[in-house]
Design a protein around this nucleic acid. Structure first.
Ligand SMILES: NC(=O)c1ccc[n+]([C@@H]2O[C@H](COP(=O)([O-])OP(=O)(O)OC[C@H]3O[C@@H](n4cnc5c(N)ncnc54)[C@H](O)[C@@H]3O)[C@@H](O)[C@H]2O)c1
Ligand SMILES: NC(=O)c1ccc[n+]([C@@H]2O[C@H](COP(=O)([O-])OP(=O)(O)OC[C@H]3O[C@@H](n4cnc5c(N)ncnc54)[C@H](O)[C@@H]3O)[C@@H](O)[C@H]2O)c1
Lengths: 208, 208
DNA sequence: CATTTTATGTTACTGTTTTCACAATAACTC
DNA sequence: GAGTTATTGTGAAAACAGTAACATAAAATG
């Protein structure tokens, strides 16, 4: 599953709208939103059009009602509990960010690690052994998980998660995980993100 | 700047080829690579074709020479020194990953933070105040930086980096940074990555 | 209240990416 | 070494995404 850019843009519009609202604005134009989100005003209107979102001729969009529509579109009427497997450097960084994730209606409900020395509560949420996964996932209707274990263990952890009913996965391990069709998987390879930047820098030099 | 998916795929092929090599293989077919990288064999061949990379009819691709070509394409004949600004949770996680980044020819040479309590060497590389940025960047030919400061400070840090000659930025702060055309910027919003997964899960339920 | 202004919403266009199909050809078989 | 097989390489087709143009309509103006 590759996440479409229009979905990412709509989520970005939502974040920008929140900031506009905080600043006391009540209406925005496609031009303002595009500027804040780094896209053209036409792109903003096109994205809204695709999802049947309409504003007012000449008067732009009312921020509160636009936010309501986007919040409904993204199921943000409630907070989505998720779990993390792998409480190493990346897992801890994410765990410590929990109070900010909740502003996007995401909450890390529990974490899991194979290393018993990680089993404690210092990161805000409990850290359990992997044997607790089935119980916690099923008892709390959890459908989404973050994998931040070493690449060597990622497929095994992934399989386990799918077995217990996880349907959406954000994977930080630098390996392409094999999942059944019904599972939504989002691969995030930070090394690659940096390498790609460096590639474009060199390319610009070459074609000068 | 939006990073094209063919570049990300080529980088992924490179990683997969490395694993094949470790496992003792000397040749691969487009089918093997596609399978490992999660794409179709046609996509693999097309990507190679786009960059003038050729293999052998019936005998596939020789791993070592393919790796050489990709390493050259991505400037991996040398290690690229980069810096991080913001040594909080995310910055530290990245810093601790330095010995792994170097396998992708990326090395975090120095880190910067406005908070004096972060100025030490416990994370492997030195952590300096921001006033040291111009000196370190220019003396070490550094062109790429990671921003992991709070959103409120990100644009200011970004401007400073561009002023001292940084040309490529990976930004973790949940804000769309304004940069001149010649700067390559890669926005990575982790909240959005999770929200997008949740969106697709709900969408699948809706259209069931 | 007629006219002008200005921003939306959509259609048509343009460009890009992916998939498909198959000719070309190197390796293998007998 | 002729015939068969398997895999590449690419051009054409299809699908997708982004840009541009403009008709439409609400608001502002006077
Ligand atoms: N830290 C980074 O900045 C960074 C950057 C790029 C990629 N990554 C990737 O993210 C993943 C996590 O990175 P990290 O730096 O946090 O690694 P880490 O080694 O610090 O942490 C890994 C954690 O996973 C746990 N673990 C190992 N095997 C497990 C298993 N089978 N089940 C459950 N837990 C297990 C370990 O106990 C450890 O706590 C890795 O795949 C890494 O390649 C991290
Ligand atoms: N930690 C996560 O998992 C996570 C998830 C999503 C997004 N992010 C984003 O990544 C960024 C960093 O997150 P974090 O969790 O590491 O935050 P953090 O608060 O732990 O760390 C921020 C660091 O930046 C430093 N800083 C603040 N202002 C600065 C300035 N002007 N110049 C230099 N340094 C400055 C602080 O001293 C601190 O060390 C934030 O923008 C955050 O929204 C983080």
């Amino acid at each position: 599953m590759i996440i479409k850019s229009n979905i990412k843009r709509l989520l970005q519009y939502r974040i920008c709208l929140g900031k506009f609202k905080e600043l006391g604005f009540t209406r925005v134009y496609s031009y303002n939103l595009g500027n804040a989100a780094g896209v053209s005003p036409e792109q903003v209107r096109k994205d809204f059009s695709t999802y049947g979102i309409t504003g007012n001729k000449k008067a732009g969009y009312e921020i509160s009602s636009l936010l309501e529509i986007l919040n409904r579109l993204f199921g943000m009427d409630k907070t989505h509990n998720i779990i993390i497997v792998g409480m190493g450097n990346m897992g801890r960084a994410l765990a410590n960010y929990n109070e900010r994730f909740i502003t996007q209606h995401v909450y890390i409900y529990a974490a899991f690690d194979m290393d018993p020395s990680k089993h404690n509560k210092t990161s805000g949420m409990p850290v359990f052994p992997l044997s607790k996964i089935p119980d916690i996932v099923s008892k709390n209707d959890i459908t989404t998980a973050i994998i931040s274990v070493p690449a060597i263990a990622a497929q095994e952890v992934c399989n386990l998660l799918i077995d217990v009913g996880i349907k959406g996965i954000l994977n930080f391990a630098p390996i392409v995980l094999k999942v059944p069709d019904h599972v939504v998987i989002n691969h995030l390879n930070l090394s690659t993100e940096i390498d790609a930047i460096i590639y474009y820098l060199n390319e610009k030099l070459d074609t000068r």
